[in-house]
């Protein structure tokens, strides 16, 4: 991973620095809609490049490359925004006369808002900006993401990155109402039935590594082999020590990657044969 992207992994928010090179120049902005790709995930993912019929996303040398748009070729057709699994592509149009432009946002919730509806525009960090009007809805389905266009003042087009439906009543369910931390401690290890209080108690008593906690509490020794609890225990240890997670050893981790029966280990054979 490039070092300049590390802070996004920690904080989850792109800064103006990170967004450099993601926007067209001022004259191109006025020519028509364009795609803004706010993708910082260097992972093997390329639907945007493959789906673009205009070769407007610079070709990858490696499948882990980040996508960058060639704005001289981008038509703002939104095909890439429909297939981006990370919902990281937005179609901005500020080519029209007047104060208002539009931004098309991916939306993977139901129900979809309707054309003309007022929704709450939100920023990258999810905070409320202002109510905006839905001007177009492209339905999702068959593996494609729904897209919703909002009418937004041109000066806010690079601020709005999400929206929420404005509800008449607040949702009936709030997790804080049903969860009482004094009453019960969250489960950390589901296999061995170890809760967070027990882990914190062990840390307070001087057990300062994943393996020590594992040997005392059995957390991580059940059928899932620590896949659910290891990261939580690491977080607790790092918080206690006041250091970054990267500085902690993850403890011993041994195969098999997935639980299989001893019968198969002993005799060999295929897992599927077991239950057929």
């Amino acid at each position: 991973m490039k070092k300049d992207l590390l802070h996004i992994k920690r904080e989850g928010l792109a800064t103006a620095d990170d967004l450099r090179g993601r926007l067209p120049d001022e004259s191109t902005k006025k020519e028509g809609p364009y795609a803004v790709i706010e993708c910082f995930e260097e992972i093997p993912c390329n639907p945007c490049v493959v789906s673009c019929r205009f070769d407007a996303i610079l070709p990858f040398e490696d499948i882990n490359d980040l996508p960058y748009v060639d704005f001289s070729k981008c038509t703002g057709c939104a095909v890439c925004a429909r297939v981006c699994p990370g919902l990281a592509i937005f179609i901005v149009d500020e080519s029209m006369q007047g104060e208002m432009g539009t931004i098309m946002l991916p939306y993977e919730y139901l129900p979809l808002p309707e054309k003309g509806e007022q929704v709450m525009a939100r920023s990258r960090d999810g905070s409320e900006l202002f109510p905006a009007t839905v001007v177009r809805v492209l339905k999702g389905g068959k593996g494609k993401t729904a897209l919703v266009s909002l009418e937004v003042p041109k000066e806010s087009l690079q601020e709005v990155r999400a929206f929420s439906v404005i509800e008449d009543e607040s949702p009936a369910f709030h997790s804080s109402e049903t969860y009482d931390p004094d009453y019960e401690s969250p489960v950390v290890c589901r296999c061995e039935g170890v809760d967070l209080n027990e882990i914190r108690d062990l840390i307070a008593r001087g057990y300062k590594s994943v393996d020590e906690i594992k040997h005392r509490s059995r957390a991580g020794m059940g059928p899932c082999q620590g896949r659910s609890c290891r990261q939580i225990i690491l977080n607790e240890l790092a918080r206690d020590a006041g250091v970054s997670l990267d500085e902690f050893e993850g403890g011993s981790f041994r195969p098999p990657a997935s639980p299989i029966s001893m019968d198969i280990l002993a005799k060999g054979g295929e897992e599927d044969a077991e239950n057929s």
């Binding site: 489960v187 039935g193 059940g222 899932c224 896949r227 659910s228 997935s258």
Partner: peptide, 22 residues
């Protein structure tokens, strides 16, 4: 139910990771 705590166990990770649904 969990063999030690007696807590109810349900559908949790849904991808074969967590062993909550044995």
């Amino acid at each position: 139910h969990h063999f030690k705590t007696g807590h109810a166990r349900g559908f949790y990770c849904a991808i074969g990771n967590c062993s909550s649904c044995l």
